[in-house]
Design a protein around this nucleic acid. Structure first.
Lengths: 182, 182
DNA sequence: GTCAGAACTGTCCGATCGGTCAGCTAAGGT
DNA sequence: ACCTTAGCTGACCGATCGGACAGTTCTGAC
């Protein structure tokens, strides 16, 4: 069977996203994806230049969203920026549960990926926005992104209303970050 | 240089723990550990039967602690058991920050590890204690263990008192798990 | 029917993984 | 001085990884 290029790319991205989110990027081989899609390993590399390209395209919507957040933060400063940064992270985590889960699965490897310029660029901005306390703020931001990701993953099958979850996560994040903005 | 067996084992465990916690179990090769310790890869396998044995020994204290929790839960039932289970998980997460981080790094792979009988056994019990809602309770328990782990990791360099953190995490966990026990 | 190009695959490659093994070296008992 | 043994290592193995590439099959335009 021969699928159209767009259909095939969509199928590959869907399978890859599911596998990446459950067993991680490193834990997923090209053969695993190919078996799930129902094609050969070589076919994947016909539609995508390499394995990293699949990941990059999966995360590009998150990158765009975070880039917009970056722009919004540019006009703010101090507590206002910190509040907007955390609120934006919570919002993005809710919108991209699976993508954030993928990011979280190989957190350390992701931060060192040059092919994710959007995401890493906005992290720098968030570090600026949330800075001013002891310790490594970068680790704190990533820690909180991961925290939100796992929280949403673990709470995915709960009956807790999304509104409540959003409010609690925002309040908890702000409190733990040591800022009192209400 | 020739170190004593006990010293060598301790050095290996220390290096492995640091590497596992930062780049994950899968992300750490035997050569990585050997380089960090300052010995050959073969030397690692002289002191430990295989790579899994290093991980198992690293996590054995957590296993023992969770086994004790399991015994404590055996005498309880219903809401009492659920409360004790969550409180115990929070307590263990605080005591074994790094080990929980390691568990969290390859969460999916860890749950399927037969060489971690202590840990997986108590998970079964925790599932029983926390059961009674829709969805997969096992995923929920692991999700919360991971949540706690990342929270503690990300919050490691914060000025928030450990007491406050402990109280907030316990309350948040109980709330999200849908139990109202106060 | 023909044919160009898109879609796809079998097969091979180098690198790296966890693990094995025969043998080397240094230390301690006698 | 001799020898046993614990500690250690270089070299090697099979498996698996991501990726390359030549060649095959399908499909739509004419």
């Amino acid at each position: 069977m021969t699928r159209s290029a767009t259909t095939m790319r969509a199928d590959i991205l869907e399978s890859a996203a599911r596998l990446f989110a459950t067993v991680g990027f490193r834990g997923t081989s090209l053969q695993d994806i190919a078996s799930d899609v129902g094609c050969s390993k070589a076919s994947l590399l016909y539609h995508f230049t390499n394995k990293d390209a699949i990941l990059t395209e999966l995360l590009s919507p998150v990158g765009r969203e975070l880039a917009e957040l970056e722009e919004r933060l540019a006009g703010l400063d101090g507590d206002e920026a910190a509040h907007a940064a955390v609120a934006g992270l919570v919002e993005s985590s809710l919108r991209f549960r699976r993508e954030i889960t993928i990011l979280m699965q190989d957190l350390d490897a992701m931060t060192a990926r040059p092919e994710l310029p959007d995401i890493n660029a906005v992290i720098e901005r968030l570090v600026d926005a949330l800075t001013g306390r002891s310790g490594d703020p970068r680790a704190r931001v990533w820690g909180w992104m991961a925290l939100l990701g796992v929280a949403l993953t673990g709470a995915g099958d709960l009956a807790v209303p999304e509104e409540t979850l959003r409010a609690e996560l925002t309040r908890g994040a702000l409190r733990t970050l040591g800022r009192s903005i209400d």
